[in-house]
Structure formats: C-alpha cells, structure tokens
Design a binder for these strands. Sequence first.
DNA 1: GCATGATCATGC
DNA 2: GCATGATCATGC
Length: 466
Amino acid sequence: MTFYYDIKNKESIISYAKNLEGKSISEKFKVGELNQKYEAKGYFGQLVERIYFGIQNNSRPEPDFLDVGMELKTSPLKMNGKNRFLSKERLVLGIINYPDLPNQEFESSDFWRKNSSLLLIFYLYEKEKIPFDFIIKIVGEWGFASDDFEIIKKDWLHIKNMVNEGRAHELSEGQTYYLGACTKGANSKSLREQPKSKVMAMQRAFSFKQGYVNHIIASLAARSGINDYSKYGKLIDKSEDLKSLSIDEIVKNRFSPYIGKNVRDVFNLLGLDYESSSKSKWSQMTNAILKVELGKGIEEFEKAEITIRTVRIGKNNYPKEAISFPAFKYQEFADSEWDDSTYSSQIEKRFMFVFIKHVGNDLILNSVGFWSMPISDLEECRQVWDKIKNLVVLGKVFKELDSNGRRVTYFSDIRSNVAHVRPHGRDAEDCYPLPVPDVATGATSYTKHSFWLNKEYVRESIFNRI
DNA sequence: GCATGATCATGC
DNA sequence: GCATGATCATGC
C-alpha cells in the first residue's frame, strides 16, 4: 500500500493529516474495512493509525513517526453551549514506568522522547455514532512553548521525585499543573510495584489535564480559523523566569506585599470597592493581586484546572464556614461509580486557597497557598459518596417524621472526618429529581444538596498547612 | 458554639 | 434562569 506522505518530512505528514479535517474515516475509505471490534475504547485511534497512515498499532517507546520525532494522537471533542469545542477528556501520554523513572532525566526521558512533538487529531465524539462516522474537526502539530515546557518539566520532576522517595502510592493528579499522573487501569485496584518502597502503587499514566487540552484545542482551532481563541489573562509575564520559579512561588510573590494587611486597605491599594456586597469581590481581589485583568480567567489556572477558594477564618483559626461543592444530581448516583463521578473529579483537582482572618474588628489578608487532597482523604470522600449513593438508589431519603412532625433526612447522618452533605440550592423548593421515589414519603424530587468539606478539616488539613 | 438547614448575589 | 461560591439563621 502506498501512502501519500513523505515519512521523513514533518510538513508532508502534517498536511496529509490535515486532509482529514471535516471528514470521517468512512468518507475517506470504503466501509468494507468495518469489523466487529469497532466498539472497543481507543478504536478510533487505531483506525486512523492503521487505515489512514498505514502504521501498525504498537506500544513502542519511540514516537510513531520516528524519522521526524513526532507522535500521533487522536482525542475526542465535545461541544459546549456556545458552539465551542472542548476536550471530552484528559489526553493520556503513556504509562508511568515506576522502576525506570528515577534513573531518567527529563530531556532524555521516555516521556519527552515520545511526546515532545504531537500530531493531534481531534474528532467530535457523538454517542450514537460508530467510530467510522466520527467527524474529524481539528488537526495540527503541537510543540511546547517555553512557559509550558518549564511547567511540564516541573510536573514531570515532581512525579519522578515522588517515585524516588518511595511515594508512588501517594501520587494524585492535583499535585501537578499541566502534566498529571492519572489513574490508568480497569479500576483503582490495578496495582504496580514501585522501586523505592514495598507498598504497591496504583498504576498511573502521564496525561495532559483536560484544561490544558482545551487550551491546545482553542489554539489549534484559531490557527485553522475554526473559532477565535478567547483571550485569558496571563499570570506569567516575560520578566519572570519559570526556570527558577514555580507557579506557587510566583503567586506567593505577588501576594506577599499584601499579606498581613487589612483587607480594606488592600482593596483601596488595588482601586477596588471594599463596600461592595458582591460575593465575587474576593475573586476580583485575587485577580488584581495577581495582576490579571478583572473578569478574565487566568490562563495558567484554566490549563491546570485550579479551583480558587476564599475562606474567612475566625477565632482559634476556625473557618467561618465549611467549603461547598456544586450541588449534585441524584440521578448521577444511579448512573456512575466513584471513579467517573463529578465529585471525584472536583475533589482531585488542585486548589488555591486565600485565607482572610478576623482579628478584633479587622479583616486581615492572612495567607495564600496551593493544596491538593491527600489520597487517604480522597478515600474518605469516596466512602461518603458511596453511602449517599446507597441511600439514593434505595430511595432512602427521608426517615419517619420526627416528634415535631418534620421530615428528617438520612443524609445528615453521613459525616466523615473530611466531608459531610448539606442542602445547597436557591431555597428548599429548589430540587433535583430522584432516580428512585423516596420510600417513606413517595417524593420524586428533593432539595438540591452538595458535599462540603468540614470546618475542622479545613482548619487542620488546609489552613494549618498553607 | 456548632451542626444543620436555608438563602443570597452574581455571572454566564 | 439557573449554577455557583459565599454567607446567613436558628435551634439544640
């Protein structure tokens, strides 16, 4: 079989790949190629490699186009409400080889040799279609701009250091920025040996976070003229050298002139209105301190999927409030497991906390820092989630009426050292449907609820450690 | 004084 | 018009 590209010429390969834009595999080839395996996960990528590029499926450590050092990757897109393409998932870039990793240097590592230049083929995933009919929307080559390179290299080093310290079993995605160590395997029971500890560690792969892939998509789409690349505010300006500073340090440096100051004075210094009753004034303050235009997303944080939370601290370093997550849909408990639940993906992210402390009658900007939940606490969150799921799918929402004739929920009995569950809607009438009607009352919907991090937990495990 | 339930203010 | 982060209210 002849292929219409020059295997030793990068531009030739890219322009051949670009012919796929706007088309599906079945439009390019006769459907006679169909076989029964088409439902298998990852099959689309195999199709493109084998049928379009004539590459035998492999799991070699070298890039697919060896002569030009470029790796071929296919990845699914979804549409958001505004007709913009978003990544459907993270982009997985190869299993982390725990035994070898401590002996590698980044520039000559397996990871960088294989992935430093990516030929990306993004297709629109549509549930009702077979992979042959998925439409390829965006094709392009992705190298790494210098800022991204430095951040990805630091992420890689973090992962390597964890393995080198015998802590591969403590790795989680929230510890790094763009390059994550995502779980890889049938479930979280896929365990591997690690070189510096006897503890078995979950199998993990290097992967770009969904937020980083979104940035790649927006950037490639803009190159192809498919849609505009919406501008974010950037945290890092040219004068700062990412070779010596991490994102953590850059953020701490920006905050340091304001730490310990009265929040009213901070607002005045920044030209912001402290009297505003807006609850978004805290995010305005953060943007202003970070020197990012107000009302804009922070590019580096969007790529790293960092969640910013502002927390007021009262006497005894006790948080004024617990920390909430978005209300959950009861139906989701019937449809998913922990590993693919919305809550698990929210709680595994990296967080930036801004702590504001009440001292006498003053509010002081106390501290700022990054945080991700330790694996052992994630396990507690999982248990809380499992218990709520169990109640919801059994239709056990309400207990019998209490002595005052009020309906009491089973949900408030479920509280661990880390998290609990509480109402979270516009008011008590703000409901989501239940997958199973409540056994005690017959109710088919219930007030929106969400998971909350306990105040005690916020104090001990976040505030006291930042 | 905290746990629990309820609700606000805004931006998209 | 609703989802979300932030905050208020009350009874034990």
